[in-house]
Write a protein that binds this DNA or RNA. Structure first.
Length: 762
DNA sequence: CGCTCATAAT
């Protein structure tokens, strides 16, 4: 990393503050064409030559090509057109003419040319112009620095800044603003603080734009408190100051404070603009503050911001995220231009709904909606980008929509999007969630660079697919490659140890996590470790571990212990754990079903009715059993005993046939899932046979090519009966069957399951 | 004179 320490910074003379006074008004791209150079009155060129709106570029060029000598002022509107057209080649033509006529001795014109080239994205040309200047001043230096910042070359910007200091030039507030911006993009807080030091020393901290830049720097470097302080020190806050502060709150997970700042801004008669509104709206999204958002919507109308596309996009996205799909539609219909960002906001909005929605039916509905929008986007003239791909891959992950995911993978390759780490991680995640460990491995290996997220995703993937050794090997690879594991990485590691029953290894990693990486253990870590003891049948060790941890055990921990006690027949400990669990008054109906089943199998009827009463008092609903399967672009979902599909007769016949064959091989149908409702009691047994995942698997067997794997998503945990039966199906039909339920991934092959026949199966 | 600061989506 570049450092200023190599430069004799202490020798910086006082800043040339005169510059600031004469440059109060900022220079927008439009204004810069109206620079008033002294014009020579003898010039014979038409007046419209200086008005960019009336100027015909070709006509102007032909005049230039005749060898007409013109004042340098006349080049400015022409060069402005080059910027507007983002055309470096047009700029070069004019540049050639400038050299021919000797206008290149005009310092101001050459500074402008540096800007033109940098705004057209060709920093090499800008550098060339700069290098050929016989005399350089602080503005030419600053133009070059700004160019590098604009073209995402912050390191080079810093290099040039150091050269400027070495050359003994005087940086201005403009220069330092650009350098601060470079520090921000590099997240280089150390150098940023040095610059801040000079700014204080030379007393230009009170300059509004400098204050804004400092606030922005601290925010980008996650120093939120410093950002707030910097904001407070700006004596004359403008709309940019407020907007910077508000978006800083969003970037630093302080959304509520952002809304407070917005209210404060309004009360101090600050006038928000379209930038402010989009920032505030994104905070409303984070906070799910729909009512506040609606008010922001009406303020936007009053301020006339609603004509701004980003504002409309943000409002639409807020409505979508809040589940107000009709309102979102209205906003969409009111848009005259539908940009890629609009598409992305729609897809991401539905993707989010898919991800957070507990009700699987609703989740599937929004997921399907997102896929439909993506199809429409592909038929339009707009090309999807990195955001689109990562959002839509998340949808495929949530829906276990493997075929769609693979298609999108192919499209991502074609568009060169695979070099992006977010898209790469989304792909690894998609294949893992779809139970395709080979696909995930391939996507992971092909990533150009890996992040903690992709490493962790892959480690967890191996653990979930019952490949603990590979998971642990990957963890070693990760640390060897210099990757720093986080708490989620360790959840994956412990989960692998739990699968492999590697108690000593687990304890070693547990120590490593606390000592070496200074990560405080959280409930998920304990859950994995307790699960490990339980799997091994070491229930007392599990219980001791619970007592040892510095946490009050939650529902999840007790449920694991209860499930283990039930499997290993240690009922005494099971009943104790059940009492602790009931004290917590869980809200989850699956937990109660687990308890009911335990008491039922022990014939403790008093407890059975006690649990039932509690469920009524706590208003716990019935289990919502749903399963879905994606075939081509259609997501098909099934309820238990579902007969809504036209192929239902064939599905049920197929299931009966498989049931008979499985029984011949030793399968025993069992009544394992108690319905939450007493009236359901009599019907329970028949329901077990037609649980939703059995139907979805049958549908897949009928509809999918005979070699294809069958992938099913299920809303609740699988019951023991289904788990056992589907193992038989995988052997009988010679198919790989993957079921992702609410708790874990089950990969069935040749009569075996990757979960190791263990888990909190109901 | 010329050079800067803030926005929506993973």
């Amino acid at each position: 990393m570049a450092s200023l320490s190599s430069v004799a910074v202490t020798s910086i003379p006082k800043f040339d503050l005169e510059f600031r006074k004469s440059s109060q008004h900022s220079l927008s791209t439009e204004k810069s064409s109206n620079i008033s150079y002294q014009r020579n009155s003898t010039t014979t060129l038409p007046d419209r030559f200086i008005d960019p709106k009336c100027l015909d570029f070709r006509e102007a060029l032909s005049i230039l090509n005749e060898g007409t000598k013109i004042e340098s002022a006349y080049y400015v509107p022409l060069l402005q057109q080059c910027i507007d057209n983002y055309s470096a080649s047009e700029a070069q033509i004019i540049h050639t003419h400038i050299i021919k006529t000797g206008a290149h001795e005009d310092m101001f014109l050459m500074t402008f040319l540096i800007n033109v080239y940098s705004k057209c994205g060709v920093m090499d040309y800008a550098h060339e112009v700069f290098d050929k200047l016989p005399v350089k001043n602080v503005v030419t230096w600053t133009a070059l620095i700004t160019g590098h910042v604009r073209n995402s070359q912050p390191e080079l910007a810093i290099e040039v800044f150091k050269e400027l200091l070495e050359a003994g030039a005087y940086p201005t507030n403009y220069t330092l603003g650009a350098v601060l911006s470079a520090c921000s993009s590099l997240y280089d807080i150390k150098m940023g603080k040095q610059i801040h030091g000079y700014i204080i020393k030379y007393q230009i901290e009170s300059d509004t734009s400098i204050g804004n830049s400092i606030c922005s720097l601290y925010s980008k470097c996650n120093c939120f408190d410093f950002a707030v302080k910097a904001f407070g020190r700006i004596p004359e806050k403008n709309v940019i100051s407020w907007t910077t502060m508000i978006s800083a709150c969003g970037d630093n997970g302080e959304a509520q404070k952002g809304l407070d700042f917005f209210v404060e801004m309004l009360s101090e008669n600050g006038e928000p603009n379209e930038f402010t509104m989009t920032s505030v709206l994104s905070l409303c999204c984070v906070l799910q503050a729909l009512e506040f958002g609606k008010q922001v919507h009406s303020v936007s109308i009053k301020l006339g911001c609603l004509f701004n596309t980003p504002v409309k996009n943000s409002i639409m996205y807020l409505y979508l995220r809040s589940g107000q799909t009709d309102e979102a539609r209205k906003m969409l219909n009111a848009m005259e231009t539908v940009s890629l960002i609009t598409w992305n906001a729609m897809i991401a909005g539905y993707a989010q709904m898919t991800d957070v929605e507990k009700d699987v039916v609703t989740a599937q509905h929004s997921g399907t909606e997102a896929l439909n929008i993506f199809l429409k986007l592909n038929r339009s003239s707009v090309k999807p980008d990195l955001f689109t791909f990562s959002s839509i891959l998340t949808v495929c992950s949530s829906l276990v929509a493997s075929a769609q995911g693979e298609q999108i993978h192919a499209q991502a390759i074609k568009t060169g999007s695979l070099s992006d780490i977010v898209v790469g991680s989304a792909l690894v995640n998609m294949y893992n969630k779809c139970g395709n460990i080979e696909g995930a491995t391939k996507a992971f290996v092909e990533m150009p660079t890996r992040t903690v997220i992709s490493w962790t995703s892959m480690i967890t993937g191996y653990a979930q697919h019952g490949r603990p050794q590979q998971a642990l090997q990957l963890f070693e690879d990760m640390t060897l490659a210099g990757g720093r594991p986080n708490k989620i990485t360790f959840v994956g590691v412990f989960s692998a140890c739990s699968h492999a029953g590697m108690v000593d290894e687990a304890m070693r990693y547990f120590k490593m996590m606390k000592k070496e990486y200074k990560i405080k253990p959280v409930m998920e870590h304990f859950a994995c470790l307790i699960d490990m003891f339980v799997r091994l049948g070491r229930l007392q060790d599990a219980f001791d571990f619970i007592k040892k941890m510095n946490f009050e055990p939650n529902e999840f921990i007790w449920s694991i212990l209860i499930a283990g006690c039930r499997s290993h027949g240690n009922m005494e400990l099971g009943f104790y754990a059940a009492e602790r669990l009931l004290e917590l008054k869980p809200k989850d109906s699956e937990t109660y079903v687990l308890l009911l089943n335990m008491y039922l199998s022990a014939a403790r009827w008093k407890d059975v009715s006690r649990v039932r009463k509690m469920m009524k008092d706590e208003k716990i609903g019935k289990l919502k059993d749903w399963s879905s399967i994606s075939i081509r672009n259609i997501v098909r979902s099934f309820k238990p005993d579902d007969r809504s599909d036209t192929h239902s007769p064939e599905m049920y016949a197929l299931l009966n046939d498989l049931l008979d064959k499985a029984k011949n091989l030793g399968y025993v149908s069992q009544k394992s899932l108690e319905m939450a409702d007493e009236e359901e009691k009599g019907k329970t047994f028949s329901s077990v046979v037609h649980h939703s995942e059995k139907l979805a698997v049958a549908y897949g067997l009928l509809k999918m090519p005979s070699s294809a794997s069958i992938r099913v998503l299920k809303s609740i945990s699988m019951c023991r009966d289904c788990h056992s039966f589907i193992k038989y199906i995988s052997a009988l039909a010679g198919r790989e069957i993957i079921i992702r339920d609410s708790k874990r991934l089950h990969q069935f092959n040749n009569g075996h399951c990757s979960c190791g026949d263990f888990g909190s199966l109901l």
